[in-house]
Design a protein around this nucleic acid. Structure first.
Ligand code: SF4
Ligand code: SF4
Lengths: 147, 147
DNA sequence: GGCAAATAGGATATAATTTATCCTTTTATG
DNA sequence: CATAAAAGGATAAATTATATCCTATTTGCC
C-alpha cells in the first residue's frame, strides 16, 4: 500500500528536470546529487522514463536528459507507471477474472472505486502543476518567529 | 501500492463472520475453508483482529469467533489497519518530518490529498455495508443468455 | 584517431518484506 | 481427562524491492 522508492525517485527526478532551464541538458549524476537518490539506481529509473517517452536522453560527452514532452502533458500517473508498471491497489484490479471471486465480492467494488479515484487524481496532476507549486513553495516566506 | 494478502483475507474473514447467523459461533478453520485462506495464516489474522477489538474470540471446545462490535460500527479502514498497521501511500505520511523534504516538496501535498481520500473512503465504508451488498450480489439474477 | 563523458543494459548482490507453516501452550467443554 | 478450539513464539520459504557492478555504446572534442 506504499509507493515504491523508485516511484518517489522518478517523480523527484522529473521535477528536477522540469525546474531547470530547458535549454541546457541535465545530467543524471547531478540529479542524483541534488535529489539525494542513489546514482546508479537513478540511471535505471531514467532509462524507464526514457522508454516511456517522458524523458529524452542523449549520450556522449555533452549528453544528458531533457523532458520528452511539455511538462503539462506529463501526468504523475504516467511517471509512476513508467517505472513501477500499472498501479493496482488490489490484485483483482490487474484484470477481470484475476480473482475468481470478483463477480460476487463486495470488496471488489470498493477497490474499483478507490482505484478510480486514486488514478484520477494522479492522471489529472501534471508535472507542470508540480513544478509551479515547487516554485511557490521555495519562495514562500518562512513562518518566522522574529516578526 | 497494493493491498497485502493479509488485508484482503481480513476483510473476507470479517465479512464471512458478519454474514453468518449471529447466534452461532464461527470457527476459524471453517472460515478458511469457505474463503480459501491458508488456515494457519488466518489464525494470525484473526488474532490481530481480536486484539483490535473487531472480533471476539472464545477458546475451547465450543469456541470460535464472533464480531467484536456491531457490523455498522466496523469500518474497512479499521479492519485493514488492524492487520497491516497504519496505511500510508508514501513514507512521508508516516509522520511529519519522516522525509525532510516534506516542507518544500510539491509531491508531498499530492500524497496528503490522495491519502485523505483513500482513508476517507475506507473509513466511511462499514462491514455492514459490505455484508448488505454481499447479499444483493448473491441474489442478483445472472445476466443470462436464454432470455 | 583516441580520450573522456555520458547513457544503456545485463547480471547479480543485498536487504527487506510478505506469506506461510510448525510447534507448544492455554483455555474451555463435556 | 480427552478433545477442540484459539494464542503465541520461532522459523521457513518465497517474493519483491533496492542497489551495485561491469561492460558496451554513443558522442563531442582535441
Ligand atoms: S477484494 Fe474480493 S475480488 Fe478483490 S481480490 Fe479480494 S476477494 Fe478477490
Ligand atoms: S513525496 Fe516528497 S516529501 Fe514525500 S517522501 Fe517523496 S520526497 Fe519526501
Amino acid at each position: 500500500m506504499e509507493l515504491s522508492r523508485r516511484g518517489d525517485y522518478a517523480v523527484r527526478a522529473m521535477l528536477d528536470v522540469a525546474t531547470r532551464p530547458a535549454d541546457r541538458m541535465t545530467v543524471t549524476k547531478e540529479i542524483a546529487l541534488r535529489q539525494d537518490i542513489p546514482p546508479i539506481f537513478l540511471t535505471k529509473i531514467v532509462s524507464s522514463l526514457s522508454q516511456a517517452g517522458l524523458l529524452r536522453t542523449y549520450r556522449g560527452v555533452a549528453g544528458g536528459v531533457a523532458l520528452g514532452k511539455p511538462a503539462d502533458q506529463i501526468s504523475l500517473l504516467q511517471i509512476i507507471e513508467a517505472v513501477d508498471g500499472p498501479i493496482y491497489i488490489n490484485r483483482c484490479l490487474i484484470r477481470r477474472g484475476e480473482c475468481d471471486r470478483d463477480r460476487t465480492c463486495p470488496a471488489h467494488e470498493l477497490w474499483v472505486q478507490a482505484q478510480g479515484e486514486l488514478l484520477g487524481l494522479l492522471a489529472n496532476k501534471s508535472l507542470a502543476d508540480l513544478a509551479r507549486r515547487a516554485q511557490e513553495l521555495q519562495q514562500a516566506p518562512m513562518a518566522g518567529f522574529a516578526a
